[in-house]
Design a protein around this nucleic acid. Structure first.
Lengths: 202, 202
DNA sequence: GGCAATGGTAAGTGAGTACTTACTTTACCC
DNA sequence: GGGTAAAGTAAGTACTCACTTACCATTGCC
């Protein structure tokens, strides 16, 4: 197998293992075994375990098919279709987390273990969402459509609903015993409550 | 030092270390060193590392000064003071997480590492909150005060706002760069948005 | 004073751990 | 088809891990 191929395969195997057991809980031997190569092969591609870990976080956070809020909500935002803006964002995030649960686990592990890339991810991606969605809310406040409130609070409420729902489904309640609804329904109801909560009554 | 004293001291030290670095990331040697005793002493009190971990989760989840939603919200619920119900619950949880950030980290680590006590905690505590708060919402729906919606969805929204805010403050953004508000303000605004979002208009 | 129970430790043990070294196989190019 | 660079490995190395053993020191009780 060619070098780049093997490297990518090791990364994929490592993503799976690190997301299941964290950095400390995963051994380089396991990774090698799961990739079907010897341990020495892993260390040919990545000088240290840390370097491999950084590579997979980078791979997941940047390279991989990430969900882009700006692209998703751009069109509804132009039309000032509040419902579509929030609902499409919620649905996009919920779907993304559902068919890539590794991502959320990796993110949490790296944040708990205080890996620098976790902070980098937060600073770049999350801050971007706050700016992006916050600006839209501010615009709609100026239109007189939304009540006067710090837009960051609204963003936090909304992201809170969505992320907490994903976290519940992925981490604590995969059988959906507490709440069993489709992502479409969740996105719809979260949006309804939030919008009703911040819209100026006529 | 007497047996029970030393045992409690080891537990306290272990809580701190496990919450910082997780189960796999903490060594028994570190724990012994931090407690100022030899490693053998730790194993005299706890047969295995797992047993110590279970003991501290138990200690944190059950014995320790936990925040009791039922007690906090009982009085406002009787008066059907919706604002006070949600605001006191939010404030109680936010304050609890703020001056005991170890608790949330321990909970997350144990959930990621799939410790059985994490599931037990979820089944008991979280389910209880869903029942308890869900029942109140159902009652207010029958009063015609709240809109018709699955109460579990409302609970998820509300807990989502609160927990996500705590998680942000504890894990990703301790400097409050994205959103810097007091717990009182957060509880007030979260409650306002949620209540406005589910209240039947006159 | 004898002596058992309790609190405590120094110095291990074997099984991992991340990482290396010295070596073999394969593929390709002129 | 010989040379060579890359792909691959078996067998280490030095060290750390959870856990054990064999032994001291203090206390209180008869």
């Amino acid at each position: 197998m060619a070098g780049q191929e093997r490297r990518l395969q090791i990364v994929r195997v490592a993503v799976s293992l690190f997301s299941q057991k964290g950095f400390q809980g995963t051994t380089t031997k396991e990774i090698a075994l799961a990739a079907g190569v010897s341990e020495a092969m892993v260390f040919r591609h990545f000088a240290t375990k840390q370097e491999l870990y950084s590579a997979i976080l980078d791979h997941k956070a940047c390279a991989s098919g990430r969900f882009d809020p700006a692209e998703t909500a751009a069109d509804p935002m132009e039309r000032k279709d509040d419902r579509a803006v929030f609902e499409s964002l919620a649905l996009g995030a919920l779907n993304h987390h559902e068919h890539d649960p590794q991502f959320q686990r990796l993110l949490l592990y790296s944040a708990l273990e205080k890996h620098e890339l976790a902070q980098m991810f937060f600073d770049q991606i999350v801050r971007h969402v706050y700016d992006f969605l916050g600006n839209y809310i501010r615009e709609r406040q100026q239109d007189g459509a939304f009540i006067e409130i710090d837009p960051a609070i609204v963003v936090r409420c909304f992201i809170g609903m969505v992320m907490h729902h994903s976290l519940n489904n992925n981490l604590w309640d995969p059988d959906r015993r507490l709440l069993n609804i489709s992502n479409e329904n969740a996105a719809k109801h979260f949006t309804e409550i939030l919008l009703k909560g911040i819209t100026v009554e006529q």
